[in-house]
Design a protein around this nucleic acid. Structure first.
Length: 646
DNA sequence: GCGGATCAC
DNA sequence: TATGGTGATCCGC
């Protein structure tokens, strides 16, 4: 949650001591997690908390992974420092002129005419729970099992924070009461709050369940009130009507409003006046970590080159471009000047870019179980796509190994999909490729699997035919029912290839899709298809085993495959057998997927609009707002905390 | 376009 | 016993 978002620096400054001590110190810092130092933490001895977390984490796989990441980051930081040392020895005056010109331009052009407000509910989930059970107000309480989603201020006194592992929190605070999440309850409460905010700015921007941006400039003018008074009334009205206390920040742009809303939390507000000097003063002593977009990693890089607060950016301006690149330099200059976006707009004017689902579970391995899990994941994704009425054209499979390393494999499809069976089917080769890669690294043993669709397409979108006639619904559920098979469409495939494929299907008695005589494939047939694909597990199992043998073979000179000609790989899509060769196999998969793709397009279209169906332009999109923040400025882009209760 | 990494919440 | 889920963006290739 936003009100507890950022790290604290350890209270002890980093001494220049042994390397190992430095390393340990940065790891302590890293293990503190992504949220600290917000309200409620003042009385906490952070170094003591860090030590407890460190001790409790020691030896765990999670810890080992953090250690590895920390070492990587240390190397990166060393490279940056070396580069900095070099840059200090050369003439930067030309870059300085360039950037100073840019700075004065930005100052000239800056917009200080708007009053932007960031409203942030205090410990929102915990507060909502306390409304139902007031007795919890006086005891340390957290929401969320496994990992704390948020906790009340009593719990924060013990060092508990959002994002913290549940068992660590229990160690810090044995009497901690933790409640399960109840998203329905929080959304309902959030809606009450939004109704009130809408009165102050009907175009408010919900940044998450518990956060929103408002532009109260028109309201102030209309009622002849100053912004601080307006926000006081807004907060009072929210508290009175919803019994939820909120904090707010007011400033000339979203970035400053956001940072300000944390200044007097909980139940307070802070205003930065709309003039250049006030903004510069406000930013000057602000730790860079407080700025949206600067996370743990970037903070460490910045601190390593001597940038702790935003004013430290200025003396470094001449080498920022060389050290961090164009985007980051622009971002840092914005930080230094306190520039941010002033345009606030409703969330539904933003375009969704992806939809996905993922789940953590007990360590899982074995082709069979992995595929079972993937089928469930595909079904989850189908449900989400159904609610959103979307299809997608790029599929991403993500896994987290039991050792916490994350890997993903994606593929652009030749047609939009949204049905679980299709998702599963197209995900199979992605999974197979990961299994192959990890075969000689101890196998694919994972603790998380996820599927995500990108390149989204709205379903139920009419596709226009040659003569402006509406001819059907592209990608809709109805459309995928494959009502009609157009004979013309099949011509794109050389006849012999189909005969060949049919041969294999006959051999194995496992046709991937049973097309009936009249060209129809009903729902029952699709279910059969899905079952067959699940059975495909066994065929991919073969692939699994064979790839291991192939791995050995590749080391042999002249790696011909004749000795093991009896061993074949099977396509997880059509069950076609082929020589155990990477290139052949991959080419076949490509072919197989595109064959599916075009066949489906053909079937979904009437004969008159095959061309359009294949080359149909993407549906109209809402224009994306020009982003003022160059890095990671996703705040507000995708607000409605769409976590699902399962 | 793909894969890894970072970030917000 | 044992550290989340959803979504976005950027970089390097």
């Amino acid at each position: 949650m936003a009100d507890e978002a950022k790290d604290n620096h350890l209270q002890q400054p980093l001494e220049h001591t042994e390397l190992s001590e430095r390393k340990q110190s940065s790891l302590h810092h890293s293990l503190l997690g992504p949220s600290l130092q917000k309200a409620g933490q003042d009385a906490v001895d952070q170094s003591k908390v860090a030590e407890i977390i460190y001790q409790a984490s020691l030896g765990s796989k999670f810890f080992k992974h953090e250690e590895k990441r920390d070492e990587q980051l240390t190397k990166k930081v060393e490279a940056i420092l070396a580069r900095k040392q070099y840059l200090e020895s050369i003439d930067l005056s030309s870059e300085l002129r360039r950037i100073d010109e840019r700075i004065s331009h930005l100052v000239r052009e800056r917009d200080l005419s708007q009053f932007i407000v960031h409203v942030d509910c205090d410990a929102f989930y915990a507060s909502v729970e306390e409304l139902d059970r007031p007795e919890l107000k006086n005891v340390p309480m957290a929401v969320g099992k496994g990992v704390l989603t948020t906790c009340n201020y009593k719990a924060r006194e013990f060092g508990c924070r959002s994002g913290m592992a549940g068992h660590i929190a229990q160690k810090l605070c044995p009497q901690l009461i933790s409640l399960p999440l109840n998203f329905g309850k929080y959304s309902k409460k959030a809606e009450e709050i939004r109704e009130i905010m809408a009165k102050y700015d009907p175009r408010y921007e919900a940044a998450s369940v518990d956060e929103a941006y408002l532009n109260i400039t028109p309201y102030c003018k209309a009622h002849d009130l100053d912004p601080a008074t307006v926000v006081s009334r807004l907060r009072a009205e929210i508290l009175e009507k919803t019994k939820i206390s909120v904090s707010a920040g007011i400033g000339p742009n979203a970035t400053i409003a956001k940072i300000s809303s944390n200044k007097n939390k909980p139940n307070g507000q802070f205003i930065v006046p709309n003039n250049h000097e006030a903004v510069m003063d406000f930013m000057a002593d602000l730790p860079v970590r407080k700025v949206n977009g600067v996370g743990r990693v970037f903070e460490r890089e910045l601190v390593s080159v001597g940038i702790n607060t935003c004013k430290d950016i200025y003396p470094m301006r001449g080498m920022l471009h060389d050290l961090f690149g164009e985007k980051v330099t622009n971002f840092l200059i914005y930080c230094y000047l306190g520039i941010g976006r002033t345009e606030i707009r409703p969330v539904d004017e933003y375009e969704r870019k992806s939809v996905g689902t993922e789940r953590t579970f007990a360590d899982l391995w074995g082709s069979n179980r992995l595929r079972e899990r993937m089928k469930l994941t595909a079904e989850d994704l189908e449900k989400d796509l159904e609610e959103l009425n979307l299809s997608f054209r790029t599929l991403v499979l993500k896994v987290k190994l039991h050792t916490y390393g994350v890997y993903s494999r994606q593929r652009a499809l030749h047609r939009p999909i949204h049905i679980a069976q299709d998702i599963y089917q197209y995900a199979l080769p992605l999974l197979a490729s990961l299994e192959t890669e990890f075969k000689d690294k101890g196998g694919l043993k994972i603790r998380l699997m996820g599927l995500r669709g990108t390149a989204l397409i709205e379903r139920n979108k009419k596709v226009q035919g040659f003569f402006g006639k509406w001819v059907g619904e592209a990608g809709s559920r109805e459309g995928t029912k494959r009502k009609q098979l157009d004979a013309e469409g099949w011509e794109v495939w050389p006849q012999e290839e189909f005969e060949q494929m049919d041969d294999h299907q006959n051999q194995t008695s496992k046709p991937v899709a049973r097309i009936q005589e009249d060209g129809q494939e009903d729902e029952r047939a699709k279910d059969i298809t899905f079952e067959i694909l699940s059975q495909g597990i066994s065929s991919t199992e073969n692939l699994h085993d064979l790839s291991q043998q192939k791995g050995k073979k590749e080391k042999e000179p002249g790696g011909q495959l004749q000795e093991h000609e009896q061993e074949q790989w099977r396509c997880p899509i059509c069950n076609h057998s082929m020589a155990p060769d990477d290139r052949i196999f991959n080419e076949h998969i490509d072919w197989c997927l595109s064959r599916e793709a075009i066949r489906d397009v053909v079937k979904e279209s009437s004969s008159s609009n095959i061309q359009e169906a294949v080359t149909s332009p993407p549906p109209k999109r809402l224009k994306m707002m020009e982003k003022k923040k160059p890095t990671g400025a996703t705040s507000g882009l995708f607000p409605l905390f769409k976590q699902k209760q399962r």
